[in-house]
């Protein structure tokens, strides 16, 4: 085997299945948690980057101060590891966040601990709704004088010639293709899967990178490897704040919800549940959302969010008016099956 080292750019969890050395390292990292009893420590799966900064300041440190429970982070976010640790009984993390697509699959697979929501309407598939993030259209201002307005423009390589990038994630990409094909935001769900793939065929030759990790999407936009990208809003602002000649639009932005979940049967159950409760309570969540430019989903948190933070939040009224929400419950097919088909489509 080769290529035994990787960066955060691509989620290293894969290498641990593939590469002896890395698996070994992971094994030693994981080892202490085998015998971990109900200690005063909690392991949280971290997205890194701007997410981690916001979470450390607003969630982890205050939680430790309030409860005395130390918070450790484990990177990167890995859906597979969540499954693997329930399967093996070796826990690397106790809590993690999942998006709307993954949480249904995770809950169906019995990977999530039953949980109560600390606030009304927060519970979905054994996850507690925490914050909203968006997939938005962003582009290089040194490439285009005219600003693209919507996904139809993203698909329009005549008016906007240049390399494109989208996330390698079927559940998020298919709705965008339908919008590009002229479907109205309110008529999207359930998705017309066939029509979406037909529309994707058109853009496929122009997609230079199907990005798989947040940091990677920032990098290719910042370095001008591509000219237009569908990117998470937080990762876009990272590129903008780094001084790259880039711009974005909230128009037709795709809002996803992130949920806190507790890994099934984790030995740190009590601390884990306590943390989820804390992280979705008004003040900590408001701080996290403010620092990370996320949209807080506990309505009670909104009063703690300062006005100046709102222009960068996907759920603030001005931005949300032009957005649509992923509707995983009414998605239009089995997301896992469609994801498999998407993978096959990519390789042909």
């Amino acid at each position: 085997m080769s290529n035994s080292t990787r960066s955060k750019l691509i989620r290293p969890s894969r290498r641990q299945f593939l590469h002896g050395t890395a698996a070994l390292a992971a094994g030693t990292l994981a080892a202490p948690s085998i015998g971990r009893a109900q200690s005063k420590e909690l392991y949280v799966n971290s997205w890194g980057g701007p997410w981690l900064e916001a979470a450390t300041a607003s969630l982890f440190d205050p939680f430790t101060a309030a409860t005395g429970i130390k918070v450790n982070t484990v990177s990167p976010v890995s859906f597979a590891k969540l499954a693997a640790q329930v399967r093996t009984g070796v826990y690397e993390f106790d809590v993690t966040t999942l998006g709307g697509g993954d949480i249904i699959a995770a809950n169906n697979a019995g990977l999530l601990e039953d949980i109560d929501s600390p606030y009304d309407g927060g519970l979905f598939q054994n996850g507690v709704a925490s914050h909203a993030f968006s997939t938005v259209i962003a582009w290089r201002t040194d490439k285009y004088e005219e600003a693209p307005q919507n996904w139809a423009d993203f698909w329009d390589v005549e008016r906007f010639p240049g390399g494109r990038s989208l996330q390698r994630y079927a559940a998020r990409v298919l709705p965008l293709a339908l919008l590009a094909d002229g479907v109205a935001m309110e008529d999207l769900y359930p998705l017309d899967i066939e029509r979406a793939f037909a529309k994707l065929d058109e853009i496929k030759p122009h997609i230079r990178v199907w990005w798989t990790a947040g940091a990677q999407s920032t990098q290719i936009l910042r370095d001008g490897e591509i000219d237009m990208i569908g990117i998470w809003h937080g990762r876009y602002f990272e590129a903008e704040d780094a001084g790259a000649p880039v711009a974005m639009t909230w128009n037709q932005s795709e809002v996803d919800r992130a949920y806190w979940v507790v890994a099934k049967n984790t030995p740190n159950m009590d601390a884990a549940k306590e943390f989820v409760k804390f992280a979705t309570s008004p003040e900590p969540l408001a701080g996290f959302a403010t620092l990370g430019n996320y949209g807080a989903l506990n309505p009670a948190a909104l009063e703690f969010v300062p006005d100046e933070a709102k222009p960068r939040m996907p759920t603030s009224p001005d931005n949300y008016a032009n957005a649509f929400e992923q509707d995983m419950a009414n998605w239009g097919g089995d997301p896992q099956e469609v994801a498999l088909r998407f993978d096959e489509w990519l390789a042909t």
Binding site: S13, R14, F17, L18, F79, A80, A83, R87, L340, D343
Partner: peptide
Amino acid sequence: LIGNQIEQFLAF
């Protein structure tokens, strides 16, 4: 592809 099967589809 093996990485993808495991990471994305939990198809161990």
